[in-house]
Design a protein around this nucleic acid. Structure first.
Lengths: 119, 119
DNA sequence: CAGTATCCGGTTTGATACTG
DNA sequence: CAGTATCAAACCGGATACTG
């Protein structure tokens, strides 16, 4: 054929990565999940803390995202026996494997801030 | 020390990363953009090729995503003077800076495929 | 405090048909 | 081939009020 070389052609390589990307996105896709992972990467937080840290998110939405992430075993929800109850969310070991990703994403954003904003 | 080190406290650190993540997501957020970048990372492609490679995307949506990405200067649209016209999309240098990111995302998906699917 | 319930408009999508 | 037009359906997301 043309440009495709070797045994593994471009499309195979491409497709396997596309599938992998979709898989990843299934877990951390959506507007807020990566931000939540990034937050919890620094330390476990309570609901109200996340509400403050993840700027712009609505309570209802945060609630739903956290549930999704718990289902996907990225985070653990721990009810503390305090006076008015409080709940602590923290990353599971599995969830922590996403930290490299969040850092890469944050790095890119920092590096290209000017270009991003200058639209 | 451990978590809080130096002058910069956790929340500052957290917030600056959250902001950076939002910036990145502004550019590559949405359901398909990362997949498109990944595809074009292998080689320039035509509209119909992308339609095939990015499984599940609708023509209308691909069209819009490509326009966004052109506006954000991630890709270039090049009309070829062929019999029925064809159009080639390819990454700009700026767009290529996202490749590390797409690889990291794809890697994570591959590594955790079993865990992702086993839900 | 940590959510849930409800309302409700806006955006996104998908399918299909159509154009140059 | 490379899109655009159209329309209905699905989903999302914000505000507010309410509960244990």
């Amino acid at each position: 054929m043309n440009q495709t070389e070797g045994v593994l052609n471009n499309n195979d390589f491409c497709n396997s990565n596309i599938r992998a990307i979709h898989d990843t996105m299934y877990v951390i896709g959506g507007k807020w999940k990566i931000s939540i992972v990034a937050c919890l990467g620094y330390r476990p937080m309570r609901f109200s803390e996340l509400l403050r840290e993840v700027e712009g998110i609505a309570g209802k939405v945060l609630s739903r995202e956290l549930k999704d992430m718990e289902t996907n075993q990225l985070i653990v929800r721990k009810v503390l026996d305090t006076k008015p109850i409080s709940v602590l969310y923290h990353l599971t070991e599995y969830g922590k494997t996403l930290e490299e990703l969040t850092l890469t994403i944050a790095e890119w954003g920092k590096t290209h801030r000017k270009q991003i904003i200058g639209k």
